[in-house]
């Protein structure tokens, strides 16, 4: 074959050209076009200060957190094909995920990924603090990050109940037991005593925050269902929106921090 190679022929097809609007990123113009023209890559600026791309400065922990979040979304979605959030089936479905399903490590990836995400979020925060990156103009984005950190912990906490084993229900019993002690809003918290009219107790174990969280007075089937919905739908949605805000603000606040 003379003239064009196969690669070039593929690049010349109408299909290829319709997907990629520019040539290979080997010159300045195309490098700009490849980042700006791709919906996924356009999270990035086109050029960046050198300190901002070096691992020694960024530690890459924020990016890894985002990646692990995506990986958890995918693995979690796959797990939902087999898992039923009822007291009757949940535990057996978890066993089935190990024994009756091909590629029996999907749950392992999900669980270890969840732990890894907690760790990477913490270290991301550690790095951001150490480089003073919360300082103006990035104060607001630091706050968004703190809320994302809390939501990461809540995601992990709600997921902890789903296997419905001894580890799960007692960890959640202890964890939600603290909600019971919320001042004024939990039945065993300070101030709950004051909210009573004669014999009628306004904040009891049937209407406090813990009851709302668990859908019952103890960790039972309603709690399993509520945690499942919170874990699979509600918190991921909120996290997704906040991640968008977080990334948007990183760009709008001038990209990754660098000396002024």
């Amino acid at each position: 074959m003379s003239g064009k190679g196969i690669a070039q022929k593929v690049r010349d097809t109408q299909v290829w050209k319709s997907i990629f609007r520019h040539g290979p990123p080997d010159n300045a113009r195309n490098r700009a076009a490849v980042v700006a023209g791709n919906v996924f890559l356009h999270l990035h600026p086109i050029k960046l200060k050198k300190s901002g791309v070096q691992l020694g400065y960024t530690w890459c922990m924020g990016g890894l957190t985002f990646f692990i979040f995506l990986a958890l979304t995918v693995t979690g979605l796959l797990l939902m094909f087999y898992y039923r959030p009822t007291a009757e089936y949940a535990y057996n479905d978890i066993i089935a995920l190990r024994e009756h399903v091909p590629l029996g490590i999907m749950r392992e990836i999900h669980r270890w990924g969840a732990h890894a995400m907690v760790i990477t979020v913490w270290i991301h925060m550690f790095r951001v603090f150490m480089t003073g990156s919360y300082k103006p103009p990035r104060e607001f984005n630091w706050g968004v990050g703190v809320i994302l950190l809390v939501l990461t912990l809540l995601l992990s906490f709600t997921g902890y109940l789903l296997p419905w084993d001894q580890l799960a229900i007692w960890a959640i019993t202890v964890g939600s037991g603290m909600a019971k002690a919320t001042p004024f809003m939990g039945n065993a918290g300070p101030g709950a005593m004051l909210a009573r009219i004669g014999d009628f107790v306004m904040v009891s174990d049937k209407n406090d925050v813990r009851f709302q969280l668990l859908g019952g007075r103890f960790v039972g089937e309603p709690a399993l269902l509520r945690f499942y919905i919170l874990h699979c739908v509600f918190i991921p949605l909120v996290v997704g929106v906040l991640i968008a805000v977080h990334f948007w603000r990183v760009r709008k606040d001038g990209g990754i921090s660098a000396p002024l």
Binding site: P25, L41, H44, I46, L48, K49, K50, V53, A258
Partner: peptide
């Protein structure tokens, strides 16, 4: 370090 580099 302040020099700008390509993201790609």
């Amino acid at each position: 370090e302040r020099e700008k580099v390509w993201v790609w």
